[in-house]
Amino acid sequence: MKNLIVDHLSIRFGAANPVRDVCFQLDAGRSLGVVGESGSGKSLTALALMGLLPEQAQVSGELSWGGRSLQTMTERERRAVRGREIAMIFQDPMTCLNPSFTVGFQIDEVLKLRLGIRSSAERRKRGLEILGDVGIPAPETRWDAYPHQLSGGMSQRVAIAQALASEPELLIADEPTTALDVTVQMQILELLFSLKKKRGMSLLFVTHDLSVAGRLCDDILVMYAGQSLELAAAGAILKSPQHPYTQALLAARPHLGGGSGDRLKTIPGSVPRATEQIRGCVFAARCEKKFDRCEREAPAFDATSKFNRCFLSRNERGSL
């Protein structure tokens, strides 16, 4: 089993810099929730891991998978990893399955081309097993169905099935339930995490929902404006968040039992644009606890397994 290390990843598109500095480590068999608002760079980070960024993207930093650098690989080596060792499922299952091919065909090609199973009877048997594993009732009847004949929840189950068909060691799930009905969201998430446990794979779960990630994942990475701000165990993040942004995110959650007159707490201001040059801390402009130094200088941090990118946590307020 392999570890994933992302070290000072930055992605540029011309003048825009949507991913500024992302660091994290995901150990084999663990699950990491990547949490952030839209535009925080979490999906781009996921695509960078898959090597699926558009051609014009300039990537710097280090992506290491099982000790091998993903960036220095040839396209051929990269393709051997993509979809085989690292698989991915996407946000909208209704547009992610090919409308012209049956469910069976789309799973079958993974078993045939990625796992190299020669016998078509064997592939069909394996494929039906996988469809059963992802909770599709009566898989035989779904094998020859086309994607448009399935509901959103069913489609996402099929998408999970075709990602898992190649028996990956790491699954990246990019907001896998955002496009689904609320009633099936939790079912899909529970399925994902139970499959992760059953197969012993690692899971990178990208979401904007901090509480869901906190409940399901081992660790949480909080991202903001293209930077990773805090990485900690899920329990620790929920109980005692360190970074002011994480604290503000948690405070902004709606509470059951809150009075009907209570207003939701919000974070004032808006996320900096990807083209903006930021000298200091990326969150400084909206931070309640900022002081002079925050706007002049970016907090240094060492990308160890757990970190928090804020002067306050290091007691560095007085040092200048």
């Binding site: 547009t95 081309l113 190649s166």
Partner: peptide, 17 residues
């Protein structure tokens, strides 16, 4: 530009396919 083409790439299929 469709999502399902990205999915096909994500499955690690050859560019030809």
């Amino acid at each position: 530009g469709e999502d399902y083409v990205r999915t096909a790439r994500a499955k690690g299929l050859s560019p030809m396919r």
